[in-house]
Amino acid sequence: MEIFVAQLLNGLSLGSIYVLLVLGFNLMLVVAKIIQFAYPHLVVLSMYVCWGMLKYTNNMFLVVLASIVSCVIVNVAIEPIFRALSKKHGLDINVSFVVSISIALLITDVMSHALNYGFPIAFPTDWVGKSVLNFGLITFSVGQAYALIGGIAAVALFFYLLYRTRQGRVFRALSENSVLASIIGIPVVKTRILSYAIAGLLGGVTAVLFARLLGSASPSLGDFVAMKVVAVSILAGLGNLKGGLVCGLLLGIAESLAMGYLPGSWSNAIAFMMILIIMLIKPEGLFGIQI
């Protein structure tokens, strides 16, 4: 029972990270109509930025700022590729998938060649933090608390932005019908770029939270997370934001529970196994495609 509760807490923290990643991914999917497989790779890249910053400063504000700025810049810098792509192919999400896989490979290869000689990076222990709660086997680290609270706050803000603000309405209008949106005067390209920027901002925050939760990162982390993020998004129904919320959290919990009862090297395989089974049963996703 104690293991169960401990892993449930773990799962909620991990799930919050997945949810954040899926949200950023889905935002670009519905607004810009691309599958950005490399989005989690960018987040991992920002974790490297955090790690680099921490060598020079302990100022949390600066580290978060660096993470956000780097993620926004890189994500927006990728946008012209996808725009050129849509000029050539129309809005074909499969082609964008192929291209973003290449971008992911590129980022992974750069990380494994040029950053920390390809070795995994470790964040300072006080960055992950001691446990704030301690009941027998149940521990809750500062990093987990940050991930959970930060995750909830970011998700709330994101949904507020999307459903309660003028910009959010513009995003939703564009995602539903881009031609109609342009007819009523919405600048399509500018709005799409803005969605990349917001996804980048979300990614930068996620990078900090993820770094505090995991305490380490490696070049191959991007691939694992990217597969989970895309899989969660497909399982929820591509573009289904609320479905992504549920599925992301569920994956985090399921994965953590599996981790609590099975040897460590299998935990990713278990997560993928679950994804695979559901995907084979429901190839179109659980909650319906919304793009």
Binding site: I35, A231, L276, M279
Partner: peptide
């Protein structure tokens, strides 16, 4: 297509 891709990737990693 995207489902097929993810099925392929997950099986590979498993």
């Amino acid at each position: 297509c995207f489902t097929v891709v993810i099925v392929g990737l997950t099986v590979l990693f498993i």
